[in-house]
Write a protein that binds this DNA or RNA. Structure first.
Lengths: 199, 199, 199, 199
DNA sequence: CACTAATCGAGACGGTACGTCGCGTCTTGTG
DNA sequence: CACAAGACGCGACGTACCGTCTCGATTAGTG
């Protein structure tokens, strides 16, 4: 997600360009404050102060605090680059662990509950997250189809279901705690899901 | 959850008794407004106004707005009374469908995201929800142990994992939509979980 | 001018009564800050801080900063109680000196320019000031008519003109400085006006 | 008042010359907006927009908005060229009418209150106005001295006092309204002032 | 004909104040 | 006591305007 209004309407290069340091400083300040004080006590003014800028400069880049938090906690590169291989169990375990890692960083864990709550108010955020996951879904879907062709999984198994079960379990772990989402947990979850779709 | 200050401290009968209609009116108003405007735009003053009372009367009964919302959206009787029988698949499907039903009512769906976000601020609420689920967990745990004894599931299968997978999937459906959590979905999820723990 | 919304609609006595100290503290703080920093640098937040209260409490009493300034700088009792006697020159000199005194206090001098500028934005303020002066005009008008009957002034002399000349001269002295509006000035102005209406 | 930085410092001719249309367009836009929205709602950006230019171009010519307004509402030629003659009453009436005319144009009436309020913040403006009037004062002073020599007025009469009474009355008419400053008013004021200084 | 220097448009920048809103608490008068 | 009413302190919101700045692109005169 690129900060707002890099849209086509601008005549390209007109006006003083935005100070690129502000964007980075704002994202960093947001991450720091999320961990320090939590989402509920996070303030636009505090972010601006920590980033060494002002509220107006932030509102020029993000329409609201949740948008800034979203970009700070879930940057574009977060869920990219699954390296899938030949072994289905290894691949699945990697996906489970990767999802867990993405959601259990201190920043993401602090941001998630508040962010989920804002989805009804800011549909754009909602769509952004869905879009981001769409790629992952497609990747997993393809892997599963390959496995079905190889006779490793039932042909009617849905990657959508698997992903939702897995992501949901991670989400619940973050939201409700205090379940330890360690490697043993990853293995157990992988096992259930894998056996669940075996022919 | 019983309205708060009706507990021990009261000298029992001193002063004017509380108007019992206020509590019901407040819960009803909260439910209506949750559906109409959503959690984010829900206001104590609005609830009081709709209920025909005042803010002070509400704060006499609930320590804060989230507590009121919690009780309005997740009353005590919500997750009680699973009738488990002999068939494991039927029992599991019932649990999945019951959880889905509890979380997908318009009121619960509107309240959930906001409520989850408040958990970090209001640990009491967090505990209340965990406690409520503890009973369900125990029930499922026992049913699973019975099934293990009967050789229907692996002996190392954890009910905790199953529950978190299942609840997480429901939660994700509510939070992210727009997946249809219909009966076909219930059957598919039940199947994956059931096969996932087969010996 | 009484702080706002003491209007009839209220059922008289419902709700927590306003803290009377806040009103006095706000007026005092406004007077102090007017002298210390001037009208242009006067801030609602600063007044609230100095008065030991908050912006919201001030906005509950006055619709905007100019209204507060007006009441602080030109309280009801400011232009009341001219003691008119038998000697026309003495009476006129008293009126000139009284007007000068009312407009040259540090508070009034600091408030006047800014307040005059707000009249176009806040017609209510404009009317308030006009209403206040109306009483003075009537008093002077009557005195002049008495003098006309006694043959001391021309019968076509207008008190309106006299007052506007006199008030205007005071205002100009305050707005433009640095003319000394001392007692010699008062005598000279009185003399011009008095001779100006002699038969 | 000449636009600012066209003074000494310029090396005369280096760089792109200023577009002369911008100055006129800015003054015209300021006059229009003053009448349309008033001083309080007058914005640098709005003036620039109406004038078809930008804020920076305006700040290159005037140090701040009040300076621009001052020049737009009170151009140099405003109070110049009194032709005084032999008859004192005619001369005085001309001065009164001329001052009234200068201050009661829609543009001047809209600009005056705000401009007066800025005098404390912008002493340069204050001085500019005082300087402008200084010429008028000198003219009137000389005319009065001539009249004194001719025995038409008391020798101790001060032109300063007369001018302040007269200007003040005009100012009050503009600031407070709604007194009609018509020709009858001019005659009455002239009469009071003239009789006020008769021997 | 390049070079220099100031202007142009556009729009972001730091700063500051605005007026509003919601929270959870309190202080009245009236049952 | 509870209740209706509404003020209270607190703190954040998102907006608006100021006067300055930094761009790339013009538009002269100068070397």
């Amino acid at each position: 997600m690129v900060p707002t209004t890099t849209n086509d309407a601008s005549p390209r290069g007109a006006g003083r360009p935005r100070d690129p340091r502000i964007e980075q400083a704002a994202l960093a300040a947001t991450r720091e404050l999320l961990v320090e004080v939590g989402y509920a006590r996070l303030t636009v003014a505090a972010v601006a102060g920590r980033a060494g800028t002002t509220k107006a400069a932030l509102y020029r880049r993000w329409p609201s605090l949740p948008h800034l938090v979203y970009e700070a906690a879930f940057p574009d590169e977060l869920l990219s680059g699954w390296q899938l291989g030949a072994d289905l169990r290894t691949d699945l375990a990697g996906i489970v662990a990767g999802t867990r890692d993405a959601f259990t960083t201190p920043v993401a864990a602090a941001a998630l509950p508040g962010l989920l709550a804002e989805f009804s108010t800011h549909p754009a955020l909602h769509n952004a997250l869905l879009t981001r996951f769409a790629g992952v879904f497609a990747t997993v879907d393809e892997r599963l189809r390959t496995a079905a062709d190889a006779g490793e999984v039932r042909s009617d198994a849905r990657s959508e279901d698997l992903m939702r079960l897995m992501i949901g379990a991670v989400l619940l772990g973050v939201l409700l705690g205090p379940e330890q989402l360690d490697d043993a947990w990853t293995e157990r979850i992988t096992a259930v899901l894998l056996e669940g779709v075996r022919p």
